[in-house]
Simulated scan of single mutants.
Amino acid sequence: MSSHEKSTASDAEEPSALERRSADLVTRLLKVGIDGLGPFDSAAKVAKAARADHPSTESAVHAVVRQHTKLVAGNGFVTGLGGLFTLPVSLPANVFGFHVLAVRAVAAIAELRGYDTTKPEVRSAVLLTLVGADATDVLKSAGLPTGGRLVGLVTSRVPRPVLMLVNKGVGFRLIAKFGTQGLLRLPQRALPVVGGAVGAGLDTVMFRRITKNAEKALPPLTGGAAQAVEGSA
């Protein structure tokens, strides 16, 4: 093989900048959003605290959603206060912070309903709730069944390379959405203070959409489904 052919083959194997960004984003969302970092509690710890304070699983789920709705609104408000001059810094911080909170909320809901968020399949399912209807396309691209709820994914033994494809697909879509959100929010968030109120409102609507999707896609594990999860561990 000539040096030119070797160089071409090496370039083909080298991940693109978009792939590296996607992988880094997914890694950070899972690490911070599910496992926690420093004072930012893990999803399992959030779920445990909610369970201790509420008599039923569903009341604990609702408490987690309420808690994180306030955090999301606060994040959107604070990062929008500075207006146009702070947007280059505040908007990326807002978008990342939003998705970290969304991941933790969904993962806490999953924990409360009997899922083990240390399992790769469950972690991928949590990520899929972030992209809404695009989850079907992500699953299809990875060669997985697209019908039914995400519970089908978490009760199966999915090869790690396939889960990596799922996570990569979510990462690609989130990065694309980051850009779209930035363009859509720019006019409304250009004004100081007003931008904060707009950011809080938009983030709250988006967050509730994600959690409603998660509550439907990840129902409480009972009977055979719970046994399947235990068997696949």
Rank of each mutant, 00 (worst) to 15 (best):
E5A: 15
S7L: 15
S10Q: 15
E13S: 15
L18K: 10
R21L: 11
L25C: 02
R28S: 13
L30R: 07
L30Y: 05
G36Q: 00
G36A: 06
G36V: 02
G38P: 03
V46Y: 02
A50K: 02
R51S: 11
H54T: 01
S59P: 04
A60E: 00
V61W: 02
H62Q: 15
A63S: 12
V64E: 01
V65Y: 04
H68S: 07
L71S: 11
G74C: 04
N75R: 07
G76T: 06
G80V: 04
G80E: 01
L81P: 06
L84D: 08
F85P: 05
F85I: 15
L87I: 09
N94S: 10
N94V: 01
N94M: 11
F96M: 06
A108L: 05
A110Y: 04
Y115A: 05
T118A: 15
K119H: 12
A125F: 03
A125M: 08
V126S: 03
T129Q: 00
L130S: 05
V131G: 04
A133Q: 13
A135I: 07
A135C: 08
D137G: 10
D137Q: 13
K140V: 10
S141Y: 05
L144C: 06
G148N: 09
R149L: 14
R149A: 14
P159A: 06
R160N: 09
V162Y: 03
M164G: 14
K168W: 10
G169R: 03
V170H: 00
K177M: 13
L186W: 08
L186M: 12
P187Q: 08
R189C: 03
L191R: 08
G195W: 00
A200G: 12
D203Y: 01
T211A: 03
T211S: 02
N213D: 11
P220N: 09
G223F: 04
V229W: 04
